[in-house]
Design a binder for these strands. Structure first.
Ligand SMILES: [Mn+2]
Ligand SMILES: [Mn+2]
Ligand SMILES: [Zn+2]
Ligand SMILES: [Zn+2]
Lengths: 151, 151
DNA sequence: CTATCTATTTAGAATAATTCTAATTATTGA
DNA sequence: TCAATAATTAGAATTATTCTAAATAGATAG
């Protein structure tokens, strides 16, 4: 499988996204993005750093943070905040929410049929929402994560 | 206004909640809880520490963290995670979601008429959710927070 | 193509948030 | 009252993230 086949965004689309957000294309940004797309779990910046070094040994932690910032600001990657833990990164830009397993720590993408919409009436006058997010916490189906019952 | 009138939970209810979660009652836990209930904004642990010292000068930062943990685990307080920023604490246990203003940083409680329910069908077999959360980000109505337009 | 300007990368130091440690004190229950 | 256990405290330690200043690379004008 070629690199370009793996990525959802073509190089041109990727480049375009960066540019319209005022960023330049750099091999580091492309590489960090590819690393995220390769294994579509939800790694921490540190894990992205470790994985990125495999194909690009000179990359630095600061650059990984810079790249992740640029990708987030360009709308190519989502940030996932967890309670008192390192931020995770998600390259799946389709409408979905996150399920955080409190047993194993993994994060799962969950499809949403209706995209979460504000019941606008409920928002007091003057609030201008730009993003709505749904998240869940609980036990995942993995062995040992569903508590005592193991049917 | 007396202290007990301010709090939604009576001392007995408060005590009960702690006990059923395996915690003892302590004046520090009560105090930290009262501090949160007094000003119902969404302070950081550090802000809680500063406010707590006013009425209890000997309290330590470690104790504030310990107390907040115990309160969260007892279901008396909610934790609010933000992107790469200190965790906030919310003593409003009624069904609501959080609106985070990206201009001023304030967090607002927004009522939800329908409590967010999982479209269970959507969750792949085996996932056991224990909590569902909705959050919003955008501009609040405060002066200067709604971007350029100021109608 | 070359000079110049600016964005980006880099290593490492600095900061901020949170957790840990070990000693002391408070609470509980016999 | 006493022993057992939980909680508090100060400060050190750790972790995540940001900052800094120098080096490098990409874009643009001539
Ligand atoms: Mn995701
Ligand atoms: Mn709240
Ligand atoms: Zn799990
Ligand atoms: Zn605001």
């Amino acid at each position: 499988m070629s690199d370009s086949a793996k990525a959802f965004q073509t190089d041109e689309q990727f480049n375009q996204r960066l540019h319209t957000s005022g960023f330049r294309f750099t091999p580091q940004r492309q590489h960090v993005y590819n690393v995220l797309m390769e294994t579509r779990d939800h790694p921490t910046a540190d894990q992205v750093f470790i994985r990125s070094r495999e194909g690009m040994p000179e990359i630095s932690m600061a650059t990984v943070y810079n790249c992740l910032d640029a990708l987030v600001k360009s709308g190519l990657v989502r940030q996932v905040s967890l309670d008192r833990a390192a931020t995770r990164y998600c390259p799946n830009m389709t409408e979905h929410c996150h399920f955080h397993c409190t047993d194993c720590g993994k994060i799962f993408d969950i499809d949403l049929d209706d995209k979460p919409s504000v019941p606008e009436a409920k928002l007091p006058r003057g609030f201008k929402p730009e993003q709505i997010e749904v998240s869940m916490r609980g036990h995942c189906p993995d062995k040992g994560c569903s508590g005592h019952s193991r049917n």
